[in-house]
Structure formats: C-alpha cells, structure tokens
Write a protein that binds this DNA or RNA. Structure first.
Lengths: 278, 278
DNA sequence: CGTACGCCCTCCAGCAACGGGAGAGTCAAG
DNA sequence: CTTGACTCTCCCGTTGCTGGAGGGCGTACG
C-alpha cells in the first residue's frame, strides 16, 4: 500500500490530480482510512492510472475516459470512439493551423508595408437578406448618392430593416462607368415595385473592416483589406459591399464622423500560400 | 446610440459577450443610463469591437488584447508580440498534431492487430538516477533472479531508494546468452563497492507500460509496447528497462499479483510516418 | 388605464481540469 | 514527547464566456 505521495512520485502525477481523480470517481484508492482520510493506493492502480493517462494523451475528456473504463467496450465500439476523436481532433488541428496562418500573414504584411493598422480585419458570415435596389452605371463612386436619392423617392426609407448599402459590381477598380447598386434592406415578405429591383443577398463569408472617417479616405481601407485578403490566402469572390452604418443628411464627402463597413466576399485561394520568414 | 441588442445584431457578438467585455474593461459603452443601467453603444465602438475580434482571431487572450488597445504600441512592439504569439501557436499546433498522430496510430494498430489492449502505453520522461548493479551474461531472461540474489548479498536491500529493476542490453530478443544487468537504485552520494558496478541512469524519454500478471506472460506486453512504438513513429533508443514494482519472496514465474513496468527508451524516427486509412 | 410583451438590468452558478493556499490533523522517527 | 514531513478538507482562482432567476423599463394594445 502506497501513500498518495509515493504513488504520485511513482506515477509522476501530481497529488492534486490524484485527489481530483478520486473526487470525480475516475480512480478511487483501494483503501481509505476512515479516521484520517488518508488514501492508500496499490500497485495495481498504477496500471489503471496508466490507462487513464494514455486516454488523456489521446485527447479524451475525463468523462469519456470514465465511460471507457467502466464500460467494458468491444473493439468496434472503441474503434468508433477513436474515429470520432480523430474527426474532432482534425477539426481542432485545422483551427489552430488557421490561427497560425493568420498570425504569419499579419507578420508578413507588417514586414512588407510597415503599417500597423492591418489588425482590424475580421472574417464573418453574413446572413442572406432581402433588399430593394436601383442599379445603374454611374460616372464615379461618389455619385452613388444620387442613386440613393432616387431609391428613397421610390421607397419610404422608414420601412428599411437596417442600414442601407452599396454593391460594386465591377471586378476591378474603375475611375469611370462604375456599375453600382444602391440598396436598402427590406422585410423578407416584400416583393418590390415596378421601378425597383428586389432580390436576396446570398449568404457569404466576407472579410470585413470598419472605416471610421470621411468618404474621401475610404480608398485606404479598401487597399488595406484587399492586401489582407491576399496575404491570408483568400480570393475576392463576388461584388464588394459598402455599408453605411452612420452617415448624415445632407451627405458630405469629408465628414469625419461617418462610419462605414467594407465587406469583401472571399473564398479560399487554391493556389500556393505565403512564403518567407519575418 | 444603439441599445445592446441592436449592437449585438450589428456586430454578431452575443449580448452576454458584450456585457462581459464591459465588465472586464475591454469595451465600455459610450453611455450608460445611471438609473436603468441600460448600455448605449455608438457606431464608433463597432470599430473598436472589430479590433478586439481581430486580435482574438489571432489567438490573443483578452488580457493581452486589453494591453494592445490601451497601450498605443509601436510597429516594433506589435511585431514582437506577434512573433511571440507565432512561437506559442506553433507549439500548440505541434501538440495537437502529435495528439492526432497518436489517435491515428492507435486506429491503425487496432486495424492490424484487432486487439483492444493497446491503449495503456504512455510516454514519459524518467529522471536520471544512480544505481548499483551486477551485469552478466545469463542463459535466459528468467535467470535474472540469481543476479538479484548476488546483488542483495553484496548490497543491503534496505538501502534501496526504490523498486529494483533489470536492464536488457541486447539490441534484439535472444533465447540464450542474455546480456542482463540487475539493478537497485541508491542514494546519489553512494559510490559503489569493488564487487558492484555503480553508475547513473541517463534521463530518457520512454514508452512505458504496466504489466499486471505473471512473468511468463510478460512477452505479450513486450510485443504490444514495441508495436505501439513502431506505429507511433518512434525508434527504440537504448536498452529496455524492466521495473519490478511488486514482486514476492521467493520469486515465482506464475504469480498473478506481480506488477512490472516495462520502459522502452525512444527517439523520434526520422523516416516516413504511418499511411493508410482505417 | 391596466397589462402584456419585449427588452434590459444585476447577480449567481457552471463549464474543464486542475493549482494554490489556509488551517488542521496524522504518522514515523528521534 | 516533540519535531518535521506528510496528509486531509475546503475554498478560491484560472479562461471566456453561457444560462437562468428575479426584477425593472418602455411601449403598444385592448
């Protein structure tokens, strides 16, 4: 019979952990002195503890280990649990890997650009959403205000379900003949008017960045998020959206209090990934 | 000004999380109604929240994020933190990867052997330890008892610092002319006698398994642990140790109450890894 | 004018797997 | 008998939240 300290040294498991395993019923000492409460372990328990440690090394939770130990399961059941465990572990591995890649991408970006403001880009899913819109080719990006004017004359702004936004349909940056769409989200039962387009935005994964400042500085945020997308191994995958979270009436190009979100739909780039050591 | 629910929908961050960030001081609402306690957020806070989420995606803890946000750090400092983060994340990735490999190795082992008892092997570090011993070539493994007889005649067993053990120096299994060493751990200040060898065990990483049962079934455990070592991509790296955690006097080959630990020193195999899908 | 409903609040408990420490009791040797 | 090493229980803390109880606030409806 071994006292807990000896058992701890022999198994290289801390006393705290042994007591915890006792408490949760994973490994009860063969003998407990009822007066003093002292725990006494036998050598046979060392083998049980070894099984516990082995299963822990495979990433099972203590609950699962308890189940495995008390249920004398067949080879097939064990195989099933292991397959499940493998799938789960593959998921976790993937997440950790993605996290590492994001860190490395940012390091490389800083290395290249020597800029600090690249850390506010996040990836998120945007739900599908019905919207009413007017689409037209305009002379420049900042002329989209007139499209919104037309939109709100046709559609009572009060019925909007959220902040209005623009969609840029061109694949590349253009200084003129911009294929623009001015949009306002509406109830999903709304069916549209003759003068208005009505459609559903598809659900997409986007890289999103919040621009706080005047519209005439928006290009900086655009460049930043596009570089981020590239550095993180994504490809632009659909028209970019520009959401006017906060703006004023009348619209001004140099109002510093405006808040705008840029959403760049993305998909994983199938090509090579980043290289380099920085 | 947005109520917490609106801010939550806009940012896709749960209300609970927003309140938590308020509590820990990461993101305080711009305005709080002192009477009702209602929190009111501005659009500008959406940008701050985005930064928080971006840093969280990089794997930083909320404490670290708080530090980054309130300390307006330079590009160099940021780069330093990111490098640190990268190193840490690489470590985590490695651990998850090893865990996955262990699971896959076990699956493959079960696939090949259709046996269930392969889950009690663990890897551990064994501390260096001074020991006294007698080394001799004997006719068979089970003759090591006579070596221990000689050892304890020369050395008072009471001074042992732990369970005695054997070292098998042969590289392969042998049915005769076994190069065996009977050992007993001693105090580290002990210097040895003329008839006894005295040396220090090196600190090594071992694959360890506890055998509970008679000595004449030990071979099964040996085969099991050796297969495990191979399946997990390790190589045997030094003489195998056999530790007699529980044995009796007189020694018997068929006593089922004996407990013995087998320790196989290992190193990573540089060659290819497992393949196959099971 | 009451009330029902949808928000919002604070406070507390819980997760997983222990680690740290207080305060008190136990064991074996000298 | 005393000393010192060992052990016990109990409680709190960790991380980043989630869930729920119990109650206040605001507005729309009958």
């Amino acid at each position: 019979m071994l006292k807990i300290g000896d058992f701890s040294r022999l198994s290289q498991v801390s006393i705290k952990t042994l007591r915890y395993y006792d408490e949760v019923g994973l490994l009860k000492p063969t003998q407990v002195n009822q007066v003093s409460g002292y725990r006494y372990y036998s050598m046979v328990q060392l083998r049980q503890l070894h099984r516990i440690l082995a299963l822990r090394n495979l990433g099972f939770s203590l609950d699962q280990i308890g189940y495995v130990l008390e249920t004398d399961l067949s080879t097939d059941e064990l195989r099933g649990m292991l397959r499940l465990r493998r799938a789960e572990q593959q998921q976790r591995l993937l997440k950790e890997q993605e996290c590492l890649e994001r860190v490395e991408a940012l390091l490389q970006l800083i290395h290249q650009e020597n800029t600090t403001n690249t850390d506010a880009v996040i990836i998120k899913k945007v739900e599908s959403q019905r919207f009413a819109s007017i689409r037209k080719t305009i002379s420049a990006y900042n002329q989209v205000g007139q499209l919104f004017g037309a939109l709100f004359r046709a559609f009572p702004g009060a019925a909007a379900r959220g902040p209005c936004f623009a969609i840029w349909h061109d694949d590349e940056h253009k200084d003129q003949d911009v294929d623009a769409e001015a949009c306002v989200p509406v109830d999903e039962k709304y069916q549209g008017l003759s003068t208005l387009r009505c459609a559903d935005l598809p659900m997409v994964k986007v890289a999103s960045v919040i621009h706080h400042g005047a519209y005439n500085t928006l290009t900086q945020s655009y460049q930043m998020v596009l570089k981020w997308v590239e550095a993180n191994g994504y490809q632009v995958h659909g028209p970019i959206r520009e959401i006017y979270l906060q703006c004023g009436e009348p619209l001004r190009q140099d109002d510093h209090s405006y808040v705008t979100e840029i959403q760049v739909p993305i998909a994983l780039d199938r090509g090579g990934r980043r290289v380099g050591n920085n």
